[in-house]
């Protein structure tokens, strides 16, 4: 009889605590639900904030980095002397390979018409080091800029580059507008 009572009491306490735990879970759920969106969030670089420090190439969990250089053709001046293509300070400016700035030769240039050139990034070679971006934004229109490529990005819970980005340029954006591309471009938000 006494044993029965103890078991009943234990069961009662168990049920009570279970309900309490259930209610607190529901409470957390409701409190957090006010901050939820149906859409998911992805990481992206704001080119306006980026200071081209080079950490995108070294700190991404992917190797090579999921950050690549994007060329916003809309903004490009199609210069002959491209600050993103040629190394600064070389003795003689020519189109020879030794003058190229990109460490992996990921930028190709094509002659269009006198005196304009089109610059194309070969994404497989780009490591996201931002050397060309620095050159382009210092001496040119800034059409070369870094973006996180979502076919490569793992969308980590906390972006390893965002954590070390000195200029807080990486933040989460809604997945429906996953790119911040310079110039008038329909695929992303205008920067």
């Amino acid at each position: 009889m006494a044993e029965d009572k103890i078991i009943k009491r234990r069961e009662f306490i168990h049920t009570g605590v279970r309900f309490a735990l259930g209610i607190s879970l529901a409470g957390i759920g409701v409190a957090a639900a006010r901050k939820t969106t149906a859409e998911k969030w992805v990481w992206q670089i704001d080119p306006a904030k980026c200071t081209q420090c080079g950490r995108c190439a070294t700190d991404c969990v992917k190797s090579p980095s999921a950050v690549k250089c994007i060329h916003a053709y809309e903004v490009c001046g199609y210069c002959d002397l491209c600050g993103g293509y040629f190394k600064p300070g070389v003795k003689k400016m020519e189109t020879g390979g030794e003058n190229h700035l990109c460490p992996t030769a990921a930028i190709q240039r094509k002659f269009i018409e006198e005196p304009y050139f089109e610059y194309v990034i070969i994404e497989e070679l780009c490591i996201g080091c931002a050397k060309c971006v620095k050159g382009c934004s210092s001496f040119g229109n800034g059409s070369l800029h870094l973006q996180i490529r979502h076919n490569l990005c793992d969308n980590c819970n906390e972006c390893a580059i965002a954590r070390v980005c000195p200029s807080d340029a990486i933040s989460r954006v809604p997945a429906s507008q996953p790119y911040i591309i310079k110039g008038d471009f329909h695929g992303g938000t205008k920067a």
Partner: peptide
């Protein structure tokens, strides 16, 4: 400001747009 204006091409060159691969879709989430 835009330092170098976008040229007006005479050779009929068409300006490409950068590609934007989509992230993993919501449906898959």
């Amino acid at each position: 400001a835009q330092r170098f204006p976008k040229p007006e091409f005479e050779s009929g060159y068409e300006q490409p747009s950068p590609t934007t691969p989509e992230p993993r879709s919501n449906a898959l989430e």
